[in-house]
């Protein structure tokens, strides 16, 4: 699944930043350096960023501006990082909190 816009009708080419690799639940994924982690995941069709603690429901980015915290993931071991506000760096480890079976 590729959800990247690429060339935009008004803005022109939107893909910027160096191509780097991040590890999402251990799986390597290509991302653009500097874009928010949540956007990089979404571009590959990965919409679930966490599972709710009580009901175990999948949740995904909801506000994209750092307010709802639905996109909070574990980044390089640090819990509760808002991935819509945190830029991708090469080699980053991103884990989905509350994944069933963990």
């Amino acid at each position: 699944m590729d959800l990247r816009v690429g060339r935009h009708a008004v803005l022109g080419e939107m893909e910027g930043g160096k191509l780097v690799t991040i590890y999402v639940d251990g799986v390597p994924l290509k991302a653009r350096e500097g874009e928010p982690i949540a956007a990089a995941l979404y571009a590959h069709g990965i919409r679930t960023t966490r599972y709710s603690p009580r009901l175990g429901e999948p949740r995904g980015p909801f506000c994209m501006i750092g307010r709802c915290t639905e996109c909070a993931m574990t980044v390089d071991g640090e819990p509760n990082v808002r991935t819509c506000m945190t830029a991708v760096r090469d080699g980053m480890r991103v884990d989905t909190p509350g994944r069933p079976g963990e």
Partner: peptide, 13 residues
């Protein structure tokens, strides 16, 4: 607004 941010700022549908 979230969709707008995703598309128009980050270039992802």
């Amino acid at each position: 607004g979230a969709a707008q941010t995703l598309v128009n700022v980050h270039g992802v549908l």
